[in-house]
Amino acid sequence: MSPADSPESGHHADPQVLAALALEDTADLSAIELHAVHAHLAGCAECAAEVASLRATLALARDGADEALLAPPPGVWQAISAETGGEARQPAEEAGDAAAVRQLSRDQETRRRGVPAWLAGLAAAVTLIAGLGVGYALAPGAAEESPAPQPEVLSSAALASLDEEAADRGSAQVRRDGDRVVLHVEAAGLGAPKGIREVWLINLDGTRMVALGLLSNGESGDFEFPKRLLDEGYRIVDISYEPDDGDPVHSGRSLARGTLEG
């Protein structure tokens, strides 16, 4: 257990004395004891390391004063229990970890799909837009149903295929509608590969992207997002083909793309 054996072994200093040294609380030790332990430390690397390690632990304990541990939400235990309780009763346990995760968060699946894992850490706000985007995409026609205020067009992009032909694939516009900012996609001629078509905003720096949602209904849709993304350089609209494989990241197959200008 402890690197410092009990003093009876005669090899190492008493752990409690080492702790006292680390705590700098040696008032109750006699001068002789103190002298002996210091003499021992001078020649015993192991005990010296023990004191250093106790000091480090003490520093960690002091640092940890403000550490608050955060319990996971209740759904987590329910999913674990479902996964492990079932296993105890029936030997079939082929359902892998992935299945368990799906069980936990079916409602979050689109979100998980939408935001690549590497990006999820950016901010809750980014995660939020994917959710909103999907919700919005699922309710097409909302824009048409509110005829009164004319949305203001903040910027627009011509979409084109990525091959050499750069064929016209429709357009996209960022519109401000009241206090909402929406990417309105009006694609055309995307082709009809079976699968899902997903709308992304790629940052001009070429290293970051966010998923806005699925083009679930034809080739047009509206995707609400925080306007600051535009200011941060997320200005390349990309429509990808996503095979239905449960992999949340961009498939690498872009059907159309264009850069938002203005």
């Binding site: 690549p116 894992a117 590497w118 990006l119 990525l162 790629i202 940052n203 070429g206 290293t207 970051r208 992207m209 390349i236 990309d238 990241v249 961009h250 690498g252 872009s254 793309r257 850069t259």
Partner: peptide, 12 residues
């Protein structure tokens, strides 16, 4: 994923 994104973005 980050490498993959850069591969996607490189096309642009």
């Amino acid at each position: 994923d980050a490498r993959r994104v850069s591969a996607v973005a490189a096309v642009a």
